[in-house]
């Protein structure tokens, strides 16, 4: 049996806002298996974004245990956590977060910069990844020269370029029209079929319904899991 991609055990996250303690997550347990396809749904403020940040190693839990790729996040230095994000996790954001003034190719190659890859290697791998997401004709285009769907494909290519085991997508279709959203989802699903675990955060029930299983968040807790 393979190691689960992510294991969260009674994970909580409390924020200290001007001396007032606010619990965003109040004990969440969740396992993302290798090759899993999970949708996290819930209303705004339910804690799904906080959970997503924890699962991606962008943040650390204030309680419980969180293992990403078998490594305990609490025991990692900031540099090790950065390396974990670089090698194990791929992020896709609602607003794409592409660097303006930078070509699709260099945007996709960005994660490779932080593992010391040379320019040629970065461009070769970025080109291959852009071809994989169907953007072979957009390699030298900048974000403002591309449609929303194309930009999100660039973002997905960027998330995939380091060969991560988990893809974390935060409302990946939120800024796209439904037809474009469908094609982005189809892309994510085809990647999942190749063995990449996909964790999708969404408040769109239809999108969530396509996942293998759904986790419903409410008030910082998992209220239903399927």
């Amino acid at each position: 049996m393979t190691t689960p991609a992510i294991v969260a055990d009674d994970v909580s996250r409390t924020y200290d806002l001007d001396g007032v303690s606010v619990a965003a997550l109040r004990g969440v347990s969740l396992t993302v298996e290798a090759g899993d396809y999970v949708a996290i749904v819930g209303t705004s403020g339910s804690g799904k974004s906080t959970l997503m940040h924890l699962l991606g190693g962008l943040d650390r839990p204030t309680g419980g245990t969180l293992l990403i790729g078998g490594r305990d996040v609490a025991k990692l230095t900031p540099d090790e956590l950065a390396e974990l994000r670089n090698t194990t996790i791929g992020f896709v954001f609602q607003s794409f977060h592409l660097l303006a003034r930078t070509t699709a190719q260099d945007n996709v190659g960005l994660p490779l910069v932080y593992r010391g890859a040379g320019r040629r290697e970065r461009r070769d791998r970025a080109t291959a990844m852009l071809e994989r997401v169907g953007l072979a004709h957009r390699i030298t285009h900048r974000p403002n020269q591309m449609s929303g769907g194309e930009q999100q494909r660039v973002a997905i290519a960027r998330a995939l370029v380091t060969g991560p085991s988990v893809l974390l997508a935060d409302e990946p279709t939120g800024n796209l029209d439904s037809a474009t959203g469908q094609s982005v989802l189809a892309l994510l699903e085809s990647l999942n079929a190749e063995g990449v675990a996909v964790v999708l955060v969404t408040h769109d029930r239809e999108v969530a319904a396509r996942a293998r299983r759904q986790i419903v968040m409410k008030d910082g807790l998992i209220s239903a899991a399927g």
Partner: peptide, 16 residues
């Protein structure tokens, strides 16, 4: 700020 956040998300260390 946003660019910094993104770079960190894709693996930039504080030092980078």
């Amino acid at each position: 700020t946003k660019e910094i956040g993104l770079r960190k998300a894709v693996g930039a260390r504080p030092r980078d």
